[in-house]
Design a binder for these strands. Structure first.
Length: 180
DNA sequence: AGTTCGGACCGTT
DNA sequence: AACGGTCCGAACT
């Protein structure tokens, strides 16, 4: 079997191979995508992505996949994700990568506003563009775009569906909003 | 207190 | 030129 398709190769290195493999969970089948640099994509169940057989993965990819798989199971179990494989965010523009990196600094159990993320990357007025960048986050859950709420504790949006955002926030004890 | 509207703002296609 | 996972203030209910 060949590795996988090349439907949406990470931009910029189109000749790179992209491996895809499913992760069965109690919430459905996720699909993870790997480049030579690491995990570069994660699709929610029902997103239409399909994966190849895990046994056909090259050794390194396969070990990454096991890390991803275990981490995802923990996350969906309401526990800290723990160790994850290297994340390949190279598909994004400079701005997007800056946003995604900032997201990774939001602690589990905490939430930021889009405006705060914008300030964190030193572009206070680009809060709207930050929303767009969040929407294009290729690795949801592990790059925690769900921890970004609209101002004044409003929920804001979520590309994969607000039910997923609520679920992920709930697993981290961040929703419903803890009252002070 | 909550809701709606209108403009300002910014990166991407 | 148009579109967003936005934000804020003003003007409502």
């Amino acid at each position: 079997m060949k590795p996988a398709n090349e439907a949406r190769p990470c931009r910029g290195n189109a000749s790179q191979e992209l491996y895809m493999a499913a992760i069965p969970t109690k919430d459905g089948d996720f699909v993870a995508g790997y480049s030579s640099k690491g995990l570069c994509r994660l699709d929610f169940p029902g997103a239409g992505a399909s994966g190849s057989d895990v046994e056909d993965l090259p050794p390194e990819i396969r070990s990454w996949h096991e890390l991803t798989s275990a981490a995802l199971q923990r996350a969906l179990d309401g526990k800290p994700a723990g160790k994850v494989p290297p994340l390949d965010l190279s598909a994004g523009t400079g701005f997007q990568q800056a946003v995604w990196r900032a997201l990774c600094t939001i602690a589990r159990g905490a939430t930021w506003s889009y405006g705060r993320v914008a300030s964190a990357i030193d572009r206070p007025k680009a809060l709207r563009a930050v929303g767009s960048a969040c929407g294009r986050n290729p690795i949801p859950v592990f790059v925690p775009c769900h921890r970004v709420l609209a101002a004044h504790d409003k929920l804001g949006g979520f590309s994969a569906g607000l039910d997923w955002k609520l679920k992920l926030l709930g697993l981290e004890g961040s929703w419903p909003r803890p009252q002070l």
